[in-house]
Nucleic acid binder design. Sequence first.
DNA 1: AAACCGGGGTC
DNA 2: GACCCAGGTTT
Length: 336
Amino acid sequence: MRPPNPQRDELHQLLLRWYDRHARDLPWRKNPEPYQTWVSEIMLQQTQVATVIPYFERWMARFPTIADLANASEDDVLQFWQGLGYYRRGRNLLAGAQYVVANGIPFDAAGWQEVPGIGPYTAGAIASIAQNQPAALVDGNVERVYSRLTADATEPPKLTQNAWKWANLNLDHHRPGDWNQALMELGATVCTPKNPQCPTCPLKNRCAAFAIGKPDSYPTPAKRTATVQLQQTLWIARCGDRIATERVPQGEWWEGMVSFPRSQTHDLTENPFDPAWPKLAGTFKHSVTHHRITLQVACVTVENAADNYTWLNAHELNAAAIPAPHRKGLELAKRL
DNA sequence: AAACCGGGGTC
DNA sequence: GACCCAGGTTT
């Protein structure tokens, strides 16, 4: 056992008392079993709570248990993940379910981290929230709260290491799951990146950044890779009531999903359906990590359905896993 | 250690 | 526009 620490005890009391009154009513908190917690944590990776909620509800209705998920196909999973982004998360969740069916449900953070798609954060989250294990965690919220509480101006990724040390030292062993969620809840709703609500913060009198009047100058921002501008054309080819589609090849963005013929230029003479004459349906921008794509949508009508494409009708298109910007392009083409 | 991977909310 | 989000995997 670790030695008594009255300051740490007070920190736990201040934050947990606040959390008991202010915890948001989130769907995955109704039934914090390992599977529910697991699914929610994977969906929440780099994704905001409000975005995840409808996906989580649909997922639980379609794949109620780990066994249901383990028996699903990758296309099933991708169709449900469609629009959420970071599709490897969905594939890994499927692989993880199969792993757990084969090897049994892990009982601590170290065991969870062996599951595909589960790293140190998610392992700590499932073990502490669903299994009451004394496991720490650090996400973007905890890192920011730590950085402000201690006025640690270290640049990431070293800051992340410091935050993990702090999280392990300050874990609440009586209510580890609530403590971890309370730290994240504070970061998400009070100790926000911009305009933190310090006057309402339960920890303001323990916060070094607040004490020196500079909460929003922490944490020190990470250096970012420069934005790259790209141009693409999406070709929506119609033959009767069907549209030409293809599987995105390995190595390209959205690999394995369903998309339309694409060219890496706005030059409409590079027309895969030549000599059919293209009509421009519109242009919009879409971001993929540090890339900024200006996407042009060209429509053509053809007489013969070339067999190097898969021609899908409206019903089949609706059921396919199509990347969000390409589905948006399809909608633009429909309005033409 | 740095790059890769999506999409949306927010300022 | 830039920044951020209950990060993990690959190189």
